[in-house]
Amino acid sequence: MIQITTPLKQEVLNQLQAGDLVFISGTVYTARDAAHKRMFEDLNRSGSLPFDIRNQILYYVGPSPTPPGQNFGSAGPTTASRMDVYTPTLLELGLKMIIAKGYRNDTVKQSLLKNQAVYLVAIGGAGAMLGKCVKNSEIIAYEELGPEAIYKLEVENFPAIVCWDTKGNDAYIQ
């Protein structure tokens, strides 16, 4: 069983191979469509993002509301390709791991290679189980976006599959 903990280490990322099932523990930031749009507006206006993205993990998810007695709502991955247009810029800023689901375009794949970052996929439709891996959550930006706000999550044993590794191997059948 491959365990990954944050802060991420480049030598650990380099050992990951497409198709590996890994379990992540540590800090993960969330962002999907609207949060990406807002981050780019911030970048253009002030030159900075609402959090330091260097060496971080970004998870494309819009969780369901947290019911009483739970740490978090249901939280499975959303489709990555909608974020393709934004991703290379974030990788250039130091983002090291993305978790989502679905195909990435060639520009994103080449940018991942260049920046020695990895793309992992979580299991679409396993939202309840993935939500239970979240032990703590805090909204750090764009609260008004509701499920599309940026959350800082603390996760434990969050399962994901390495889809595009630092050597350029792809786990998807295409």
Binding site: P67, G73, G76, I123, A126
Partner: peptide
Amino acid sequence: NSDTASENRLPMCQ
């Protein structure tokens, strides 16, 4: 996941 969802009353998918 379906078991986890019903036990915790969390939707299966977000």
